[in-house]
């Protein structure tokens, strides 16, 4: 068991060769992305694209089947007063809620993402993590969001982290694997870059910034470093990997800055829900309010949009 099941093609790269990150440069680059002016038709397009990239998320200990059903209804009916809106990419829930979500979303083309592997801390044994993953997949999850073992990563045990990801990827079967680095606990951008490379070489389909349980969650700096890692990995291997910033992106304006960054770092090929996601809950309503503002010319109030 364990490593015998591991995909032998996966190979841990020499992380000491991952280039260092120039933090000052990253900050300046990020500041530039925030100075772009996206208005009118381009803004409407961007807002719709953002909606279609959202993983509508509820990850609370107090989640109930009712809450998850409500979230799924929100995913299906974002704002029926505005026809022609795209639907969100996925709903993201705990493994025990996957069956509920699957039932609520039946007949709709919305993915079900489930966090797994002892989310959010990842503090458990590999066998528990693999069972957690298999349970979610069996219940109907089409995407798995796993967490890496930050403790092992920080103490330099890259092999351990790598093997874990490879094993979870194997347990996922056909489900997409998103690997959460929890950048808020990694400390430096250098480590973020190393962890990104490690996760991608281990077979991640997506790399994701955060669980949303730790501050700071997603920042533009961290996301830029991860996007650059994706670019480097693509040049080295020819394989595209997706990106999912999660936590703390709650306004349309900020989400548009992220899109600008995505476009200027990875280009058009990544500008689809297949390759980029926002992990968020309150972002959807802000985007809807902005779209409504664009079409009516009147500033909106959250009172007139469904709560999720």
């Amino acid at each position: 068991m364990g490593l015998t099941a591991v995909n032998r093609k996966a190979r841990l790269p020499d992380l000491s060769r991952v280039p260092a990150v120039d933090e000052v440069g990253v900050n300046e680059r990020v500041a530039r992305f925030q100075s772009r002016s996206i208005k009118k038709a381009a803004k409407v397009d961007a807002l719709k694209l953002i909606l279609s990239m959202i993983d509508l998320t509820t990850l609370e200990g107090q989640d109930t089947p009712g809450k998850v059903q409500q979230l799924c209804q929100k995913a299906i009916h974002l704002h029926d007063a505005m026809p022609g809106l795209p639907h969100v990419a996925a709903v993201c829930v705990y493994p025990t809620m996957v069956a509920t979500a699957k039932e609520a979303l039946s007949g709709h083309d919305i993915n079900i993402a489930s966090v797994a592997t002892a989310f959010p801390s990842g503090m458990s044994t590999l066998s528990v993590k693999l069972d957690d993953t298999r349970m979610a997949v069996k219940a109907g999850a089409t995407e798995i969001d796993m967490v890496i073992s930050r403790g092992a990563f920080l103490s330099g045990d890259y092999r351990f982290v790598f093997d874990e990801i490879v094993a979870v990827k194997e347990a996922c079967g056909d489900a997409h694997l998103k690997v959460i680095l929890e950048t808020g606990e990694l400390g430096t951008l250098d480590r973020v870059r190393k962890a990104s490379m490690l996760a991608m070489y281990a077979g991640a389909d997506f790399i994701k910034t955060s669980t949303g349980k730790i501050q700071p969650a997603a920042t533009m700096q961290v996301t830029l470093v991860m996007l650059q890692a994706i670019r480097d990995y693509y040049y080295e291997t020819g394989r595209m990997v997706g990106m999912k910033p999660a936590g703390g992106i709650s306004t349309s304006k900020l989400a548009i800055h992220y899109l600008v960054m995505l476009h200027e770092t990875l280009g058009n090929a990544w500008m689809t829900p297949e390759w980029f996601r926002f992990g968020a809950s309150s972002l959807a309503n802000d985007v809807l309010m902005q779209l409504m503002k664009q079409s009516t010319g009147v500033y909106q109030s959250p009172d007139y949009f469904s709560k999720d």
């Binding site: 010319g297 009147v298 500033y299 909106q300 109030s301 959250p302 009172d303």
Partner: peptide, 8 residues
């Protein structure tokens, strides 16, 4: 007009 129309 903005004072009068803002929904919030």
């Amino acid at each position: 007009e903005y004072f009068a129309s803002h929904m919030d």
